[in-house]
């Protein structure tokens, strides 16, 4: 049986990173995957002022520390764009520095997943496929807009399940949050889903 194929040639990606070397590496990897349509913005301000509402993107790859704003702020503002498809686009945040507080802030800003730099091609490919295949309900409240964050193996604080999508017995063992990619993933992803 042949392996599953993924067609990235019709995708349009937005890369937000002020580091030209990182953009070169990332762009090269994406082109090798077949993703040719790439738009690069060095700052969050440029994304918000020049690109939002004018160009449609299937995928956003964003550095966590931009020169003019934190990646978490940009993600949060993209998630609040009314009447604009970009607010639902999968956002992969790339970060070289992963203290737990940063990972938590990025998750709470509405990012789909976080990838630790330096990025390996396999990790990048897996995260794109994962973001595509694992569709998540979006939640909008006064304090949060983005994909449903309730991934951890914890019951609601008051013990009352409210949504049909709440994870119960299907969820595996909880793991402690940490700084490696695997541990970031366990912090961000449903534990019932495996990338391999």
């Amino acid at each position: 049986m042949s392996a599953k194929r993924y067609n990235l040639s019709n995708l349009s990606a937005l890369i937000v990173d002020g580091d030209t070397h990182a953009v070169e590496l990332l762009g090269g990897m994406l082109r090798a995957f077949g993703l040719q349509r790439q738009t690069v913005a060095p700052t969050g301000g440029e994304v918000l002022s020049r690109l939002v509402g004018r160009t449609a993107f299937d995928l956003v790859l964003c550095e966590s520390e931009l020169s003019d704003m934190a990646g978490a702020e940009l993600v949060s503002r993209l998630r609040r764009q009314a009447d604009n498809a970009i607010r639902f686009a999968p956002i992969v945040v790339l970060t070289g520095h992963t203290p737990l507080s940063s990972v938590g802030a990025l998750r709470d800003s509405g990012a789909h997943c976080i990838v630790k730099k330096p990025i390996s091609p396999a990790t990048l490919f897996d995260r794109i496929v994962w973001a595509a295949e694992n569709t998540r309900t979006f939640v909008e409240t006064d304090s949060y807009a983005g994909p449903d964050r309730r991934f951890r193996n914890l019951p609601p604080a008051d013990g009352v399940w409210r949504r049909s999508t709440d994870l119960t017995s299907q969820v595996g063992e909880a793991s402690e949050p940490n700084l490696s990619q695997a541990e970031i993933d366990s912090f961000m992803k449903p534990t019932r889903i495996s990338l391999e």
Binding site: A3, R5, N7, L11, A89
Partner: peptide, 28 residues
């Protein structure tokens, strides 16, 4: 408010053609 957004990424990724993961990773 719960929203089920249109997932274009998933649809486009599964269009005919494309590349196997091993080949994509090796090329990258």
């Amino acid at each position: 408010r719960l929203i089920t957004p249109p997932y274009q990424l998933q649809q486009k990724l599964l269009e005919p053609g494309g590349i196997e993961k091993d080949k994509a990773v090796a090329d990258a």
